[in-house]
Design a protein around this nucleic acid. Structure first.
Length: 322
DNA sequence: TTCCGACAGTGGGGTCGCAAT
DNA sequence: ATTGCGACCCCACTATCGGAA
């Protein structure tokens, strides 16, 4: 444990927004990893969004206190694993829940994590939470000169739209806008910080559904055509209102078939009801996982103008112009 | 009056680890 | 030995409510 002087704090959170320009805001890359407050004193302690101790899982990051000045300090940043310069969340996933020290050590050597730091809560043992962001950025660059596995997140002023386009073009998840005069509000979600995420869109075939609680719709089972065959792309379980859920259930119940129209691993089936692959819906998602599933899928409505046969499998291209 | 923030609840992909089968 | 489930990480949403703007 670090000294009692440094209280455990939750990270400040952001609301979602569309790209914009504003002179009062800076814009930085939205890093796709584990959000983490780093407590630097005689040692380094890493804490997740929910105050879980992440330190055992990332031994290669436990020397951060030796790369910083003005201790004790508390930093806010993101643990990422870089792959060709881009953060790989799936690589991080493989490490996040490892418990065996031997396996952790081998994973750390093979795919070392990096701490990307973008804010400072304590410096020289004193809170700087009430300082405006602009001032905290100055303090941060004094506390962290930059090091081997600690990187200061860069930012631009005012020109959020262009920066978002540039980041999206490079394959990054999005950007975060932060108000220059805002204090650091631990655990609070407010318009001081706005996340602007790149989303992709796909039109996919509804191949079945799974019931939810209390007669509600749980999720839709989705597929797309690849080489003339329906390929499973995962499920979508959010984005529809209660009313839309009932409408979808009654439409789908008229299309019920016995045989699944596509292959879905048994382990991913929870009382599925298969239907004739006829209805098309639009979904938004962030990326295709290595398993070929939609990540962060949300339902955007039926596409009655589309034929099922026209729906090719989502491939992670086709990103939304917002 | 309208909007914002907080909270609860449901759902997604993915991982590990443990208990029940 | 296999399976199911919970707890985490990342989330996207709907729905509600009380209070601030």
């Amino acid at each position: 444990m670090t000294g009692a002087k440094l209280p455990l704090l939750k990270p400040m959170l952001a609301v979602t927004a569309a790209p914009f320009d504003h002179w009062e805001y800076i814009f930085e890359i939205k890093w796709d990893g584990y959000r983490c407050l780093a407590y630097l004193d005689g040692n380094t302690e890493l804490r997740s969004r929910n105050l879980i101790n992440l330190s055992p899982g990332f031994p290669e990051l436990l020397n951060l206190h030796r790369q910083a000045a003005s201790l004790p300090a508390v930093l806010d940043g993101e643990i990422v694993i870089l792959n060709n310069g881009l953060p790989s969340f799936s690589a991080l996933q493989e490490r996040g829940r490892l418990a065996d020290p031997g396996r952790i050590k081998r994973a750390a050597a093979k795919m070392p994590a990096v701490y990307v730091v973008f804010d400072v809560l304590y410096a020289g043992g004193k809170p700087v939470l009430k300082e405006p962001l602009a001032r905290r950025k100055e303090i941060l660059s004094a506390v962290v000169p930059g090091g081997k596995n600690i990187i200061i997140s860069d930012y631009v002023r005012e020109e959020g739209r262009a920066f978002f386009q540039a980041c999206a073009g490079r394959g990054l998840e999005g950007v975060v806008a932060k108000r220059l005069n805002s204090p650091y509000l631990p655990g609070k979600r407010s318009a001081h910080w706005k996340k602007i995420r790149r989303t992709r869109s796909a039109e996919l075939v509804i191949c079945g559904y799974e019931p939810g609680r209390g007669g509600a719709l749980g999720s839709l089972i989705l597929g797309g055509y690849k080489d003339g065959e329906l390929v499973y792309q995962g499920k979508v379980g959010t984005g529809f209102t209660r009313r839309e859920q009932q409408e979808l259930i009654s439409m789908l119940n008229k299309l019920v078939v016995k045989k699944p129209p596509l292959k879905v691993p048994k382990s991913e089936q929870r009382h599925p009801v298969w239907v004739k692959p006829q209805l098309v819906c639009e979904v938004h998602y962030t990326e295709i996982t290595p398993e070929g599933r939609l990540r962060h899928p949300s339902y955007k409505g039926l596409r009655r103008d589309k034929e099922a046969a026209q729906c090719s499998a989502a491939d992670g291209g086709d990103f939304n112009a917002r």
